[in-house]
């Protein structure tokens, strides 16, 4: 199953990036995609079984993205106001907290979301503990309230 999904993702990429749709180029792409699929099939998907839960996850991820973009715009306005303020009212500090997320993909999504939302960047994840650098106390408290963590947990069905 994962062979087929990996092959189709690779082949779609080939078709878009080559931009030629005659038989010769498509056959070349098919052969090279087969070779790449055979050698790296365990990189993209670690599991062998797929179920309907995966489709729900993809749909929920697509719903999650617009909220993330809204947060990113807020983050940028926040950083812009800090940069353009002559006194620059920042009080940075490191915080660490435990997370309830388990899967690798949800950990990565949560880390990237933290980096892109106002005033916080992820520095390290070890044994389910996040090390986060926050620009001031308010954004750290916002993060510790756990709203975004619940959203990510909802996307990847861990709640």
């Amino acid at each position: 199953m994962r062979y087929i999904i990996t092959f189709f993702i690779l082949f779609l990429n080939w078709a878009i990036w080559s931009g030629k749709f005659d038989a010769f180029h498509l056959a070349l792409g098919g052969i090279s995609c087969l070779i790449v699929t055979y050698t790296t099939h365990d990189l993209l998907f670690e599991r062998k079984q797929f179920s309907f839960k995966d489709i729900t996850e993809v749909i929920r991820l697509i719903i999650y993205i617009p909220w993330l973009i809204y947060q990113i715009v807020l983050a940028n306005i926040h950083v812009a106001s800090l940069v353009l303020n002559p006194r620059m009212p920042i009080d940075p500090k490191m915080i660490r907290f435990k997370t309830k997320l388990k899967k690798d993909i949800s950990l990565v999504t949560f880390a990237n979301s933290i980096t892109l939302t106002p005033g916080t960047i992820t520095a390290d994840i070890t044994d389910g503990e996040y090390y986060v650098h926050a620009l001031n106390k308010k954004v750290a408290d916002d993060l510790l309230s756990g709203e975004m963590e619940n959203r990510v947990a909802h996307v990847f069905m861990e709640d």
Binding site: N76, V79, V83, I90, P92, I121, H133, L135
Partner: peptide
């Protein structure tokens, strides 16, 4: 432009990451 200004104005390496990573 705000990312670049942040890169120039912020006091240390971690805070510069904030400006560049988002902007």
């Amino acid at each position: 432009a705000t990312a670049t200004l942040g890169l120039l104005r912020f006091p240390d390496f971690y805070t510069r990451m904030h400006a560049t990573g988002k902007g």
